[in-house]
Design a protein around this nucleic acid. Structure first.
Length: 456
DNA sequence: GAGCTACCTCTTGT
DNA sequence: AACAAGAGGTAGC
């Protein structure tokens, strides 16, 4: 079996600049799961990543770094969204540019080494001290060897004697907890931090195991760029929030509830089919459907903690004969036909390249083109434009956004029964005028703040 | 052209 | 527990 390696990166990033929990769970992407408390796992294109964070740092693990990883040159090096907001556009752009450079340099400093994944019997654990109260560990399961502590850090080599009955992850957690309890006093430690800092550190620890070889700098910088692009880290979110707050009192409330909401920059193909699944569905069911799509028509990329991860299917795979029938059986309902037909239309118009070209088109053209795909109406077209084609002023108006608008902004709409074309335009135009060129991003913060799951 | 409905299935609320 | 209502809509009338 090929050894799968992991790459561990950490990037300086305040939680107000990126809030993983909200950003990955607010329904813009449907492929992220909370693998353990505070640890988010999912895919970016064909790669499986885990993310965790504390107040100052974003921890990233790439789980399927291949020995023969082919890094395409200059992939994703676009920087077309460093948009300026507000009146002092030029000044702000300069400011953003400066920060961009600084941040990028800083992130280069924080690279750890690659390491083998969870396949070995020996697990080297390195972890900073945290407060951990309860430990459940059977002496027969694991044996700690060569444990020692340095400053705030525990280093322990642990032999897992009973791997069959324990997932690597569980064993590792036990190792960490065990060594911590034995060796370390609880340090100054703020347990109110979210997400759970223990797990942040644990994620970090997982990826410091069995350090194998150095990863080439080009590979590292490529993956840093992938992360920066996916989360649009070059955009100064504190600045953007400040701008939106100055324009809208309701936004201030939303901002307080949901800091660090980032608009992801997702692959268009994945976005198209995911949002075709979204019609008349709630987030949990959409996620389930997307998962089925990947398992059935995607290809296996790697296994993490006993779970297999599949890539998002290609357009070709979804355009193949018989796909609709399969999807019907998988309970996609009327969406089955939309998916298959849209895949066929996409193939005939030029597939991924056709979609990619829309990135450079104006919003109106972009959404009109997208609506030629069966199952893609105004709302879905706006979602795709906003979340994968860089149209940050696009406002998807669903029932939810409509209700927010009617409640807080446009009381005249309260008597309206359904979101007709005219109502849709009215709501979208209102937010576009209110927030300006990044209106879609601001709208996504409002939307997040209104979701029940982020009520606390 | 605006407004109404059927469409599939599942989750959530009562 | 069982049943209705609604779910980040779209297409067709």
């Amino acid at each position: 079996m090929n050894k799968v390696k992991s790459l561990f990166l950490h990037i300086p990033c305040q939680i107000t600049e990126l809030n993983l929990k909200i950003t990955l769970q607010n329904g813009q992407s449907f492929r992220w799961k909370e693998a353990s408390p505070g640890v988010w796992r999912g895919m970016i294109r064909d790669d499986v990543w885990s993310f965790s964070q504390d107040n100052t740092t974003l921890y990233c693990v790439l789980h399927n770094l291949r020995d023969d990883a082919q890094i395409p040159p200059n992939v994703d090096s676009r920087n077309d969204y460093f948009g300026a907001v507000g009146e002092n556009a030029v000044e702000r752009e300069k400011l953003n540019d400066n920060k961009k450079v600084k941040r990028f340099k800083a992130s280069h400093l924080s690279i750890q080494k690659s390491c083998t994944n969870f396949t070995d019997s020996y697990v080297d654990v390195k972890i900073e001290c945290d407060a951990i109260k309860s430990v459940e560990i059977k002496p027969n399961d694991i044996t700690a060897e060569n444990s020692h502590s340095e400053d705030n850090t525990i280093v322990a080599s642990v032999l897992n004697k009973n791997r069959k009955n324990n997932s690597a992850s569980n064993v590792r957690k036990k190792c960490v907890r065990s060594s911590l309890e034995q060796k370390i006093d609880v340090k100054n430690f703020n347990t109110d931090q979210k997400p759970n800092p223990v797990m942040c550190k644990l994620l970090k620890a997982e990826c410091c195991t069995n350090i194998a070889s150095n990863t080439p700098a080009t590979t590292v910088s490529h993956y840093l760029k992938v992360i920066q692009n996916y989360f649009r880290l070059a955009v100064d979110l504190n600045l953007a929030y400040k701008d939106w707050c100055s324009k809208d009192v309701h936004f201030q409330a939303a901002a307080q509830k949901c800091p660090g909401v980032r608009l992801l920059d997702q692959p268009p193909v994945e976005n198209v089919f995911s949002f075709i699944c979204s019609s008349n569905n709630n987030i949990s069911r959409i996620s389930g459907l997307v998962e089925k799509l990947c398992v059935e028509f995607g290809s296996l990329q790697c296994e993490v903690d006993g779970q297999q991860w599949f890539s998002f299917p290609s357009i070709e795979a979804l355009a193949a004969e018989g796909v609709e029938q399969v999807l019907r059986k998988l309970a996609f309902g009327y969406r089955a036909a939309y998916i298959h037909k849209s895949a066929r239309v996409l193939l005939s118009t030029g597939g991924e390249a056709w979609l990619a070209a829309l990135r450079d088109a104006p919003l109106s053209h972009c959404r009109a083109q997208l609506q030629t795909l069966p199952g893609v109406g105004p709302k879905v077209a706006d979602c795709i434009s906003l979340m994968s084609l860089n149209k940050l002023d696009s406002i998807p108006v669903d029932t939810h956004v409509f209700q927010i608008a009617a409640r807080l902004y446009l009381p005249a709409l309260r008597s309206t029964k359904s979101v007709t074309e005219r109502v849709y335009r009215t709501v979208a135009a209102h937010f576009q005028t209110l927030y300006g060129p990044h209106a879609g991003w601001a709208h996504s913060v409002l939307f997040s703040a209104d979701l029940k799951k982020f009520a606390s």
